[in-house]
Nucleic acid binder design. Sequence first.
DNA 1: CGGGACTTTGATCCTTATCAACTTATGTGG
DNA 2: CCACATAAGTTGATAAGGATCAAAGTCCCG
Lengths: 260, 260
Amino acid sequence: MDGREPRIGSLYCWRYPDDMESLEIDTSMNSCQACAVRNRAICADLDDEEIGLLNAIGRRKHLRAGEQLLWEGDEAIIVANVVEGVLKLSTQTADGKEQILGMVYPSDFLGRPFGETTPYGVEALSDAQVCVFRRTDFDRFAREHPRLEHKLLERTLAELDRTRRWMVLLGRMNAEQKLATYLVETAERLLPATCEEAEPGDKRTITLPLSRQQMADVLGLTIETVSRHISKLKNEGLIDLPGRRELTINSLKALAERGG
Amino acid sequence: MDGREPRIGSLYCWRYPDDMESLEIDTSMNSCQACAVRNRAICADLDDEEIGLLNAIGRRKHLRAGEQLLWEGDEAIIVANVVEGVLKLSTQTADGKEQILGMVYPSDFLGRPFGETTPYGVEALSDAQVCVFRRTDFDRFAREHPRLEHKLLERTLAELDRTRRWMVLLGRMNAEQKLATYLVETAERLLPATCEEAEPGDKRTITLPLSRQQMADVLGLTIETVSRHISKLKNEGLIDLPGRRELTINSLKALAERGG
DNA sequence: CGGGACTTTGATCCTTATCAACTTATGTGG
DNA sequence: CCACATAAGTTGATAAGGATCAAAGTCCCG
């Protein structure tokens, strides 16, 4: 793996010169060349000509926090790349409970290519920017550009690995282990955004992308159980809570141990 | 979708002439042309020349029930296509509990292409036949044959969908719902093997590929809870148990309703 | 400053895990 | 072919963890 490869869930920090450059002009332009995730998303391996073609079929869309991009069960008309922000993929059970199926971060891909229906709802958790394609356009482009399809395959395989690891959390962990594991993983995934202010040792302060209820929905718990165990971890000194959405992990290592 | 496409988890029945033919010569030959899953596995779209090349890098391997093919955490040296039998993908938690991550059936693909390590253990649950490739050979072949890579992508996307649906089961269902859902899904996935003897209405008799303990490991439950709820469903007349590994679903529809 | 959403905490109930005993199949060798 | 050993499955009693119901507390934003 060459240090620039996007290893999801790793501690890799994104502040590379090429990213810097593109970030600087990101807000002023709207083309792939100027895209903040140009070198990390599935388009990374495309040459300039291909990027031009892709650019022609995609368009930027800004989402407000809470805004829904896709609805579960709808015909799959749209796929997208995340450029900025955090979104959740989720589904409802027959009795109205929600289960969050995954979170997507910048450079992640979203939607169901080569499929009839969208198997989950997608909602922005923060203000976000996505690069949207009509699925049919995207499918055609992908089939004609194996390098893109290869990237998509690698990403899908990685996502499948991650999802399977999550199954262990849902199937075999108790509430405390779930929460500890979630917090550690979130800290790692959010690291890129905050890694300039590298904190000493393995202490980490993060802004939680999820409310308590949403954490419960990711972890297969209730809001009360989440809240209780957060309090418990705080009382035991493993974490601190500077604010409701701010959380300091005093020792990643110690917290990870709680995750089993 | 053209009626020959492998829709995993659907009620589609495989008894098409081309499958019949290949089945007949399957035991006598060992080449892709004679492969029982030739038209359903990821190799389906390859032409004769490509199949020849693929044939050269793969080889058949017979597995006994209980035999392990891959070990979790090992370097990813092997990938494979399932030709016959049922295998499980599983992982151990730190405290020794097992979580089954998925089951693979004939024509399914298995292993981690383009990856460093195998993220799960693979064990044959029944006697099985697989078509094995050295991962590096397979990776190279895939990159050179976009049609294969495309098939693999579609399969991986479908598997991801299925895995995400399983997350709902693990995260949000109670024991009875889990069990009912599992039995219905198993009946549907096993249908191809038994569909000649189409049973009346939505009654189905299946041979369970998993022991009670293994069912517990798939569902995130304990063996006792599985056993109790099987007994409960039996007492309520929803299922019958002609033998330990035989199970009759008296009404798929009624059982599916229990799954919520 | 006040209203509404989100969060925390408490009390209780229910489901499932755990521990233990017993039953039923499977198979092996005398 | 039967007795016995072993593995797999069932059933019961009890305990623990998390859900549920209820109420109070906190933060945010107009």
